[in-house]
Design a protein around this nucleic acid. Structure first.
Length: 352
DNA sequence: AACCGCCGCAACCGCCGCTGT
DNA sequence: CACAGCGGCGGTTGCGGCGGT
């Protein structure tokens, strides 16, 4: 096994080798230590794993370090693709699918591990509200994150919150809860965490969150519609760069016709350009608006607006949530003081 | 310390669409 | 055009770790 590592390390220096292979070798070396520890602790399991090489049966279940190294070395030398052929050529007793999955979700050098940041969570929530369970599409906008990881995040964290609120994750009520409470708070959390200029895609997502929250608050279909919602929208539109590009056409589309509909502009942009180009459209819109803002010598402070809107949306939402959360036990909601806990004690008291 | 239940994650499964023959 | 093989995607499952009792 060490031979494989040495070979891998030796070839890392030159030749046609995918970028980041050296990092992968380092990771594999760390895993080797873990594997050796496992072998000491579970000698029978290790022996069973070795048995896999004796027959021609396809192996299943957890990957061993040997298999990982084999796959890493092979891909380092020959590149990805043709997974079934790759599995055979590399001598792996695995299906091509299994190899592909192992590489993409775990062994790939640029795979980012660890908790999702507030930025990433915000992006996931926003993109999921737009695309649904299109995990791979969502993952494409989170560098280093895999569709599997995002899917797991959604199924564990997000659905857990839905369960806490005693509603279905696909219900309008929970979606509104995300828009009004969770996402603005994530935006605020991201702002305080970073406190610096955000990457464009994150800024676009945050902006979108706030505009959508305002639009939802202003919509008659929103289950939390409230007298304060117009104030929310006003706040969003006065602060949001997207709103400055509102067209008369989108205004006509509004039910009340009194105020341009920010979300409609984004939706129109998405519809006009095709869904895949949504972010391009949003980015372009933001760039244009930023330019306009500069011309007007008005420096738009997105993050302070985010914070201000968060208070407004929370207040608007809280007003109409009376009764909804009644019956929640403190155990269910408040036990988790983890970073991803949704509802504060304050929320509960105000909502009662 | 032992047991139990829950949670998170890695891996598998089945389906679907694409491509080559 | 039909078929087979393959890759990609979303849903599901099983296992290990961890916290509570």
């Amino acid at each position: 096994m060490e031979t494989a590592l040495q070979q891998s390390a030796a070839t890392a220096g030159g030749g046609m080798r995918p970028a980041g292979a050296a990092t992968t070798v380092k990771k594999a070396r760390q895993e080797l230590e873990l594997e050796q520890e496992r072998e000491l602790r579970f000698p029978q399991a290790a022996a069973a794993a070795d048995q896999g090489g004796l027959d021609e049966e396809l192996r299943r279940g957890p990957w061993t370090v040997d298999e990982d190294l084999t796959l890493i070395n092979y891909i380092a030398d020959h590149g990805e693709g043709r997974w079934n052929a790759l599995a055979r050529a590399a001598g792996l007793k695995r299906t091509g699918k299994s190899c592909r999955l192992r590489w993409l979700n775990y062994l790939r050098p640029d795979v980012k591990r660890g908790d999702f940041t507030a930025d990433e969570q915000l992006l996931i929530l926003d993109l999921h509200s737009r695309w649904g369970n299109r995990w791979s599409k969502i993952a494409a906008h989170l560098p280093g994150r895999t569709d599997n990881e995002i899917k797991n995040y959604w199924r564990t964290r997000v659905q857990k919150h839905a369960k806490q609120l005693n509603c279905d994750v696909n219900s309008k009520r929970f979606k509104d809860a995300m828009r009004f409470l969770w996402m603005p708070r994530l935006a605020e959390r991201a702002a305080t965490a970073a406190h610096q200029p955000q990457p464009q895609h994150v800024a676009a997502a945050c902006n979108n969150v706030l505009v959508a929250a305002a639009a939802a608050a202003n919509s008659s279909s929103c289950c939390w519609s409230s007298p304060r919602s117009s104030a929310v929208t006003t706040a969003a539109c006065s602060g949001s760069s997207s709103c400055s590009s509102l067209t008369s056409e989108s205004a006509h589309n509004d039910d009340d016709g009194a105020r341009p509909h920010a979300a409609a502009v984004l939706a129109a942009a998405a519809a006009a350009t095709g869904d895949d180009d949504y972010w391009g459209a949003v980015t372009t819109t933001m760039q244009q608006n930023h330019h306009q803002q500069q011309q007007q010598n008005e420096q738009f402070d997105f993050w302070s607006t985010a914070s201000a809107l968060q208070h407004l949306t929370t207040a608007a939402a809280d007003q109409d949530l009376t009764g909804w959360v009644q019956g929640f036990s403190d155990d269910g909601i408040l036990s988790g003081s983890s970073s991803d806990s949704l509802w504060s004690l304050d929320d509960i008291w105000r909502m009662q």
